[in-house]
Amino acid sequence: MDLFEILFWILTIGAISSALGVILSRNPINSVICLIATFFAISGHYVLLNAQFLAVVNIIVYAGAIMVLFLFVIMLMNLNADVEPQKSRLVQFAGIISGGILFLVILAALRDSKINGVLEKSSNSVGLIENLGKTLFQNYVLPFEISSVLFLSAMIGAMVIGKKEPSNDLPERSPNQN
């Protein structure tokens, strides 16, 4: 047991327990908080794996932006445990069983697999921003540009979808009422 493994286990327990929290808590807000915690644990794993840059980006993007959006939407809809739709026990049970079976199948399959790489504990420079930047802009320029176009179109799409359409059941508001 060295420091690396201690940290690994702490982070792993944190990640799995908070992930379970996501799916088990009845209140959506609690789910969001648990998911943020999961992301923090995963970011911790990234740091362990010498991917500091990715760790921070993970926090900024997931915890800082995506989850804020989730929180936003949940708050706007005022969802809480009282209005949370519940599935019947049977369906929940089936969900757990099938997820568990999938996990078991993969575990059983991987037990005999020939993937046996070893993660060296010494740090390397792969995860440094300079390295990533070079890889990104030398080998993956085209995917990068395409994904930026994708992102732009997603943004516009989200705006178009989310725009309040002039509906008939709401009285038209006059400009000076704003």
Partner: peptide, 21 residues
Amino acid sequence: VGFYIFILVLGMTVLFALGFF
């Protein structure tokens, strides 16, 4: 939608099982 996801997972499991075993 839940039913669809369920079928999806089921199919995935079967495929994994077939592929590996």
